[in-house]
Design a protein around this nucleic acid. Structure first.
Lengths: 235, 235
DNA sequence: GGCCCGATTTGATCCATGACAAAGACTCTG
DNA sequence: CAGAGTCTTTGTCATGGATCAAATCGGGCC
């Protein structure tokens, strides 16, 4: 039996407030696995055998349409629970999660979920909040896609990424994992061409700084203003 | 103290499998209120004092953007729980719910939620599934908005409405509550003008039949084919 | 170091759909 | 039954972005 050091979940919000002994107890059913950059943790349509917590690294969660287009649902950062299909009554995973950099995840069999939440009711509540937060975010995204133009959506997406995975730099904040224009396009419902043009324009104005699979936001506040401005009000 | 007849929640899926005595117990904290057509049950931004179950009628849930545009999040049909901000850790309602026809709702104070789920753990699980379902739907909508054109999105929206609130007619299925082209536009991220044109075109082809605040789907299957066809493949 | 491949940039063109405008059509009310 | 207020239809025009096409750039690998 793989034994996992309980300290790895010391700062997982979902498990906050539990004792070390309780952590150990929970980890009894878990396994830690390494996922190489680019490899999937699970794939859309697969039977939902397990649920997960990301310990280290970054994952991209995406949905594939029947005709092969893909949409980025979100990025997972360390400490988050993901792949909880079992908790919401899905038999199969509704999306694919793959590593954008070498990552480490904890894996529990789906079967232990009911047991866990029965034993720690706070867990149910926390999980509910986590799912609720994602619902909120999804709705925000729907509203955004319905009412704002591409430039504003890209601005919002960048701000969200910065908040979720920003790394402070001398001059601005950098998104802490490799991300392509294509990724940003798939987060905002546009094309990599349009994203490239927008970022170029922003770079011109000193708002951001780009690079291969790299985005640095120099002026988050300016970006915020852009994101919030009403759809008609352009320069 | 208002006493509510336990039979009103006999067919609420959330409470299925509980005994009549348990229903009574739950209803002890509830009040039933009538909401006139057009009146809000709660409004976006308001403190989330209560959560609800719709007993009779239909509600529209919508979000308002800072600049006054609105987006329809969903319609609530009888038997559904809604306004569960408290369950997902929101202090205020993130959207507005108002009656599209005269309706009756059960109201519980948010404060009893923790109590209820503590007493009936199955409730927590059911609620989780309900929220999960909405998350799925929201993601589906994001994918749709990112990858399909307006006509396909409208087709999907109609099919969803038919499934949720379809009333079988001699010639087709009717959406069982008054709904305007504006509503459909706000569900699909387009304008009432475009929706009107699309419905007119479909009516021409015999797929649907329209009227004031009324839509009858004559050929669900044709609509389905339209909804699924790849974005480029038009007549 | 030189090659190869994926990522990015940029230009030119096209078109789905939004915006504007105005005229019906249906309901309810007084 | 007239009038008002919604809702719906339809026409015309403008345009934000998608699409198509090609360079160019930058890294990693042998």
């Amino acid at each position: 039996m793989t034994s996992v050091d309980p300290s790895v979940i010391a700062d997982v919000p979902l498990f906050a407030g539990l004792s070390r002994a309780e952590h150990e107890d929970m980890l009894r059913d878990a396994k830690a696995i390494r996922v190489a950059k680019g490899r999937p943790v699970f794939a859309q349509g697969e039977a939902a055998h397990s649920f997960f917590v990301l310990v280290h690294g970054h994952l991209r969660v995406m949905k594939l349409t029947p005709d092969g287009q893909q949409v980025v649902v979100r990025f997972v950062v360390p400490g988050e629970i993901f792949g909880v299909a079992c908790a919401i009554g899905c038999k199969t995973y509704p999306a694919t999660a793959s590593a954008v950099i070498d990552s480490v995840v904890l894996v529990w069999p789906s079967a232990v979920w009911p047991e866990l939440i029965a034993r720690w009711p706070a867990l149910a509540s926390r999980a509910m909040h986590a799912i609720g937060g994602r619902l909120q975010e999804a709705h925000t995204r729907v509203v955004e896609m319905s009412t704002r133009q591409v430039e504003q959506r890209v601005a919002h997406a960048l701000l969200r990424l910065v908040q979720q995975a920003g790394r402070k730099l001398d001059k601005g904040v950098e998104i802490a994992f490799p991300i392509t224009r294509q990724d940003v396009a798939e987060m905002t419902g546009t094309t990599l061409h349009t994203v490239s043009r927008i970022l170029s324009a922003w770079e011109e104005r000193g708002l951001v700084e780009g690079g291969r699979q790299r985005i640095v936001v120099r002026e988050p506040h300016q970006l915020f203003i852009l994101a919030e401005s009403s759809p008609g009000a352009s320069a």
